[in-house]
Design a protein around this nucleic acid. Sequence first.
DNA 1: CGGGATTATGCGACCGGTCGTCTGGTTTGT
DNA 2: ACAAACCAGACGACCGGTCGCATAATCCCG
Lengths: 198, 198
Amino acid sequence: MAKIDSKQLKKDKLLEQGVTLLLEKGYHATGLKQILDTVQIPKGSFYTYFDSKEQFAAEAINHYIEPFILRLSAHLQNPELDGLMALKAYYSELIAEVAQTGFKGGCLLGNLMGEIGDTSSLCRDALLNAVARYSDLQKIALERGQQQGSVRVDRSAQAMADLMLNGWQGALLRMKVEQSVSPLQAVCQDLLDDYFRA
Amino acid sequence: MAKIDSKQLKKDKLLEQGVTLLLEKGYHATGLKQILDTVQIPKGSFYTYFDSKEQFAAEAINHYIEPFILRLSAHLQNPELDGLMALKAYYSELIAEVAQTGFKGGCLLGNLMGEIGDTSSLCRDALLNAVARYSDLQKIALERGQQQGSVRVDRSAQAMADLMLNGWQGALLRMKVEQSVSPLQAVCQDLLDDYFRA
DNA sequence: CGGGATTATGCGACCGGTCGTCTGGTTTGT
DNA sequence: ACAAACCAGACGACCGGTCGCATAATCCCG
């Protein structure tokens, strides 16, 4: 049992560091050796934890999105709080954080969708699942906003959630090259403060 | 002179094939050898045309965006045509084309922004320039729509152009993993048919 | 309970291959 | 004959992945 725990611990450490490096440099520019070295796990052991680099990336995707799901869920815990306000608060937090990290990395989901989303079916499935879960949560937030009267009802919550997600991903790309959070602020303002408003 | 032309010709062939492969597999997954082989130019000659792979990619970015600029410009040539309608026609064309290619590749600008936009300053500059030119053109289209009364005037054309671009880039990512053009259609409908409308 | 035999685990060295880049001999043109 | 242009091949580095050895754990029998 202690063995299993230790194994799971190391696996988590690999995933943790993997997420960091994948986010920083992308899939093809990140070598397994680099990940293994920084967490002091021998090269030969990698394949006891994962079947391949590709499958490792797929697991990293799930490992990455979990905290975001939890964070957004936390904002939605209070059923009194307006759904739209919760979304705004959540995105404000994200913007503040990314500003501190120097506009590097962006979103692992977006980066990997662009780099290998159309070439690795393993990762594509993981990405699909992660995006679906994330999108669903935003849909729920917007639905609540609709019930509370702050969000327009003549467009489906799902459609708005998708638009928000897409706009955010595009803004993250712009952020990278413009080295500024203003694209992120703009998309939040345009959509959350205007377009989605009832 | 014939020499210079021949050199420029080969350089263009390299860029042409480079764009194809970069679009298909990304920056790090594309090897120079593969590009050189398919256009039958010896490996040793590469550095007579370009200083480095990175600089090659930067030139490929410019080479890539040019046709899109021209295409959109063509739609805007007729000053009678409504700016918003021109945009819609342009994007409809793009959607029809990408559907034929099997949802592969997407947009080179978006892909490279995600993969190396925050790590290669050379490419970042090229991306910034390309995006700015492309964005400006869309701003002009929207401005014309505003003058013609089809586009709302309480938001700046620049802000709407940015939102359109960001939403489109995000939708391209979704397209890759969902293997469908519906994200593209959705973003066009949401923005061009509703949000931007006067 | 002790200790040799056997199985399971861990991991460093190494595989074939490819990477981006460079150099020096060869060809070409004048 | 000479200079410039060109390019084959090599370079060192690194890739993802494999494999056989060394160590550790387990078992079995005296």
